[in-house]
Design a protein around this nucleic acid. Structure first.
Lengths: 352, 352
DNA sequence: CGTAACGCTGCAAGCGTTTGCGTATTCTAC
DNA sequence: GTAGAATACGCAAACGCTTGCAGCGTTACG
């Protein structure tokens, strides 16, 4: 059995309670400097580490917040997780990862684990399809939730990037370059992130007096675990089948775009001359794609920081119960070569 | 305060102990079917979830194993983590991630958290530079450790891919294609994984009657968080400075290779005609690189499964203390286009 | 009818911490 | 020399759960 407070106390010749107070750094009960030193020394010698379980039990607070993630492998999700992780640690709490790796049936399971671990709050890094039920389980327990993704039917603060604005940036960029037949590779439009991108797409077109041509909407079918390159590759087939061929395509994320890039290259199309491509997310590899990818960057760090800050407000104010907030963070366009705008030289950045 | 066992018990009209036994599924003390049903029903109605903290305290076992990872963002590490995660869950334990995201100073911190959480074992997904001290902290407590990476000076089971064999596969492949001036982009050779790759490189050359030309060894300098594409890009400069130019380069991982690819392309070199490239790891994006990358694939799932199996042997057999085992898993070569071998058609695979 | 055996359930201790409160000691001031 | 205040520390309850053991009611058998 590991070394306990009792061991430290008897080693130092004091009572358990005194040892606890010293080690916790509790200044109030005026412990003598000598005693303090003896306890510290004993703890050091015995290599004492407190036991989280006993601590939580006594404290009534777990100092844990859950991070809900359905697919760390995809796109920027891992970056989001990392940012959340350090924001949480920065506040002295411990993050608890609930990762379902694409297995939707694990989501409720994961929520239950959060409850068993008495998380004081949950932040959703990315939601996945079956999130609704899982998050309800948490909401029922009045566990504060904040999300980095739009969530339907769940009471939670939402801190997302403004996907509409992002899509507008991307599409305007293409329109400015003269493109008019712009395809959109999209996942289910009934899910909010896709829908928002679609709205931005429509709005930007409208600004230029164009309307959406339904034949240019290419659904991404199927779902892949660990990365969607293959999905983009497959979907590009349908893109290529459109007659007459669009001159540009807006992809729902970078992995799709890079997957599509391969299919287009195999079909002999030159990028950007014969087909321009825009992605979404700005994942690390985007700059190293076959043709460096122009894409909409998510300000992941800012997003995570704001989300965690909001969550801790909730955790602190047990009382007031203010209505859920929605914050939209402005994304920016990162211009690389895949649209033909900045064919040479360093990347250019267009602010939102 | 959340609903406790006591609540369930009084709701069902039984004692706490009875409720506990029913909920735990303890068959021994022959609880009547009626009682059992009443307790279950009460628990369901109250949405009871046990409290892990109280449970661990009473049980004396945490049913948690730690996963030590220094850089999830890099290469196959995330895939390893995922594989470990599900192998651990499959055994009814909970994984606890200790992630240091490249901040070496967090590693000891992370080890201490493992101890506070009373992990019953630790598996090292990837080690990072300062691992030694951190792992000693665990070893001191006799916490069983298994590692997916070679570890120096720490008592642990090691389940790695055979990097020497992998390097031999890669270099032989290049030699077979006629290359003789083969550069190697390597990180510090004093670290075991790099060294093993170097050994394989040397051995394969020797098999063909060649010896290592030191001018072809290109060190990768600097360390980047989140992905090493940029590192590969920078390092390729030094590769290009070698006179006469090598005809092929063996990169220590896929991200380096893909980063280098960009630099080579910018320098106007054609791949594979003017410079062949081989990577290591077979990350998802390797197939979608500018030139699909020939690389040595790590059998991540098998590795994780074996590691976890071994760890649980340790956890079960508290007694015998058998000497640390070392298992080397054979990697395989995935041939794509970057060496010119399979310029067209589907990927070919060469078994080890 | 007595008693043993068995089936079912509750009592209570204990896991490692925290913390309110009580107590013993010392000091100050008169 | 003593009241009173500080000062320094220990006692013990509580957190939610598990589990060995005791207790009770019932049945079966001698």
């Amino acid at each position: 059995m590991a070394v306990t407070l009792k061991d430290v106390a008897s080693e130092a010749g004091v009572a358990v309670s005194t040892a606890s107070r010293v080690l916790r750094g509790d200044p109030h009960p005026m412990i003598g400097a000598g005693t303090r030193e003896r306890v510290m020394e004993a703890a050091r010698r015995l290599r004492y580490r407190h036991n989280v379980y006993a601590r939580q039990l006594a404290l009534g607070r777990s100092e844990v917040v859950g991070i809900f993630a359905s697919a760390l492998m995809e796109g920027v999700n891992l970056a989001k997780f990392q940012a959340l992780e350090s924001a949480i640690r920065a506040r002295g709490y411990r993050p608890l990862l609930g990762h379902t790796a694409g297995h939707d049936e694990l989501q409720v399971q994961s929520a239950k684990e959060f409850i068993s671990s008495a998380v004081e709050g949950v932040v959703v890094a990315n939601a996945g399809r079956g999130h609704r039920h899982a998050l309800e389980v948490l909401a029922e327990r009045r566990i504060p939730i904040v999300s980095l993704e739009p969530l339907e039917g769940v009471e939670a603060d939402i801190i997302t990037v403004d996907r509409r604005a992002g899509a507008r940036l991307a599409i305007r960029h293409l329109l400015d370059l003269g493109h008019r037949r712009i395809a959109m590779l999209h996942s289910q439009l009934d899910r909010s992130p896709s829908w928002e991108r679609y709205e931005g797409y429509r709005e930007a077109l409208a600004e230029y007096g164009c309307s959406v041509d339904p034949s240019l909407l290419v659904p991404i079918v199927g779902a892949s675990r660990d990365g969607s390159y293959a999905l983009g590759y497959e979907t590009a087939r349908h893109l290529l089948a459109i007659q007459p061929l669009p001159t540009a395509a807006f992809c729902s994320n970078d992995e799709i775009a890079i997957g599509a890039m391969k299919a287009l290259a195999e079909a002999g199309l030159r990028i950007p001359e014969e087909m321009a491509l825009v992605g979404f997310d700005d994942i690390k590899v985007a700059a190293y794609a076959p043709v460096p990818l122009t894409t909409v960057a998510q300000p992941v760090a800012a997003q995570a920081e704001q989300a965690v800050a909001l969550l801790f407000e909730h955790i602190a104010n047990q009382g007031p119960e203010r209505p859920p907030q929605v914050v939209q963070i402005e994304p920016r366009l990162v211009v690389r070569a895949s649209c033909g705008a900045a064919a040479a030289g360093r990347e250019r950045r267009a602010e939102a």
